[in-house]
Amino acid sequence: MLKVTDLYKKIGDVQALNGLSFQAENGTITGLLGPNGAGKTTCLRTLFGLLQADRGQAEIDGMDIARQPLQARKQLGLFPDPFGLYERLTPREYLEFFAGINGMATADAREATAQVLQVLQMDDIADRRCQGFSQGQRMKVALAQSIVHQPTNIVLDEPTRGLDVMSTRVLRELLLRLKQQGHCVLFSSHVMQEVAALCDQVVVMAKGRVLAQGTPAELCASTGKNNLEEAFIALIGTDEGIAA
C-alpha cells in the first residue's frame, strides 16, 4: 500500500507538489494521470525518498519513507524513467545485483533472477550485455529489475513510452498478474488509452495536486462525460500535454 498525505515540494521556483494526497491499495492497479509537468515524476521521486518533501509525508506499507527509508524501500520496486541500465552488464548480472542490494543472499538472488527471467521470457537475452538492446528488451530488463526482489509495491514511471505493441502487451500482462498476486501497482502516465485499459483506480493530477480520484467509470459519471478522455479534459480544463 502506498499513501501520500498533503505533499508540498518546491523545485527552484516551481511549486511541483502542492498539497498532493492519494492512496494506492494492494491488489489494485492505480494510474497517476496528469499532463506533462503535473508533478508525477516529482511525486514518485518523493515517494522513493530521492526528494525530500517540504511538507507532508509519503508512506510505504505504513512506513514513513523519510523516517525508515531502508525498510520502506525494500517493499518498493521501481521502474524508472529513464531505465538506468548498466550497458556493460548482462540482464542476469544486473538483476542479481539489484536482488543483492535489496538484501537477498547470493543463492536466493540467483534463484529469484532465474525466476523473473523466465516469467518475462528473457532467457534468450539473459546473458548478453545490455549494450545494443532494443527499447522492448530494455523495458523488460527494467521491469524485471523492479520485481526481482519481490516487493509488495511496484511503481512505474511512464512505463509504456516508446514501446511497440508486443512489449506493451508483455507489460500489461505482467501488471495484471502482479495485481492478481495482491501487489500494489502504481504507474504514472499521460497516455489515456493505457490508463483506461489497465487501471482500477485513476488519480487525476495537475499542477501538483489531485483533481479527482476514482474508477474510470466514476470519473466519467462525476463529470457527466461518456469516456475517460472527455472526463479528464473536463477535470483539468484543457487538453494540453495529453496523449490520446
Binding site: 522513493f48 530521492l50 531505465f83 538506468g84 541500465l85 548498466y86 550497458e87 542490494i101 535489496n102
Partner: peptide, 14 residues
C-alpha cells in the same frame, strides 16, 4: 549521466 545513480539511490542502501 546514464541515469543509474538515481535508481541506485532509490534502493535500500545508504
Amino acid at each position: 549521466e546514464r541515469n543509474s545513480l538515481t535508481l541506485l539511490l532509490s534502493q535500500p542502501l545508504l
